[in-house]
Simulated assay, not measured.
Amino acid sequence: MRMTANWDDLGPRVASGIAMALLGFGLLYIGHLPLLVALSMLAGLATWELSRMLGGTTPGVAGGLAATGVAAAAVAQIFAFATGEGLWDEVYLSPWIVPFIGLAIWGGGQSVPPHHRWVFTAYGLLVLFAFVGMFYLRVMHGLIFVLFVVGVVVATDIAGYFAGRLIGGPKFWPRVSPKKTWSGTVAGWIAAAGTAWALLGWEPAMVLGIAPILSLASQMGDAGESAIKRRAGVKDASALIPGHGGVLDRFDAMIGASAVATLVMVIGGGWLQ
Rank of each mutant, 00 (worst) to 15 (best):
P113W: 13
P113S: 12
P113R: 12
P114S: 14
H115R: 15
H116V: 03
R117W: 13
R117F: 04
W118S: 15
W118P: 00
W118T: 15
V119W: 14
F120R: 13
T121V: 15
A122N: 10
A122S: 14
A122H: 14
A122P: 07
Y123W: 14
G124P: 07
G124S: 05
L125W: 14
L126R: 11
L126I: 13
L126G: 08
L128T: 13
L128F: 10
L128W: 13
F129Y: 15
F129T: 13
F129G: 06
F129E: 03
F129H: 14
A130Q: 02
F131P: 14
V132P: 04
V132A: 10
Y136E: 00
Y136N: 01
Y136S: 00
L137D: 00
R138H: 01
V139K: 09
M140D: 09
H141R: 10
I144W: 03
F145D: 01
L147F: 00
L147A: 02
V149P: 04
V150A: 09
G151Y: 05
G151S: 07
V152G: 03
V153N: 07
V153K: 06
V154F: 04
V154H: 01
V154E: 03
V154D: 00
A155W: 02
T156Y: 08
T156E: 11
T156R: 11
T156K: 05
D157L: 04
I158C: 12
I158K: 10
A159D: 06
G160I: 00
G160F: 04
G160W: 00
G160R: 12
Y161D: 01
A163C: 04
G164A: 10
G164N: 07
L166R: 15
I167V: 14
